[in-house]
């Protein structure tokens, strides 16, 4: 319970960074922290006390393995989610660099040609 809340605290810090900060790189950092928090949360819910990694090695007892191993499905989901967040990061950095080239600033309060 406490550990879920701590993980969630990380999540809301990412949200705070996104809303309150006006700097493009800081906003990207906010998104990165959000992704860390969600990935961590997925792994936390799949953890079993004293669990072992879900990898079988030769000679291991399959019975005890399937009782002791942690939940493998969230790990698969997080693997997908890490790749997706890398993709989003690449796109965001490229757009931010292009914006810097155009406006010569990273400050969103100065990047505001669009209004209404």
């Amino acid at each position: 319970m406490t550990i879920y809340l701590m993980c969630f605290f990380l999540f809301v810090m990412g949200l705070y960074c996104l809303i309150a900060k006006k700097h493009l790189i800081k906003k990207i950092i906010g998104i990165a922290i959000l992704d860390y928090a969600v990935n961590l949360f997925l792994i936390l819910i799949g953890y079993k006390s004293g669990g072992i990694p879900p990898v079988l090695f030769e000679g291991m007892n399959k019975q005890t393995f399937s009782q002791q191993s942690v939940d493998p499905l969230p790990q698969a989901l997080v693997l997908t989610s890490i790749v997706i967040s890398l993709g989003v990061l690449i796109m965001m950095v490229s757009i931010a660099l292009r914006l810097y080239e155009k406006y010569k600033t990273f400050d969103t309060s100065e990047i505001s040609r669009l209004r209404g």
Binding site: L15, L18, L24, K27, I31, L34, V88, M91, M92, I95, A96, R98, L99, K102, I111, S112, R113, L114
Partner: peptide, 13 residues
Amino acid sequence: LEASFKYMILGSV
């Protein structure tokens, strides 16, 4: 680019 960045931030959230 500006619209795209804005869209991207909100979309990622």
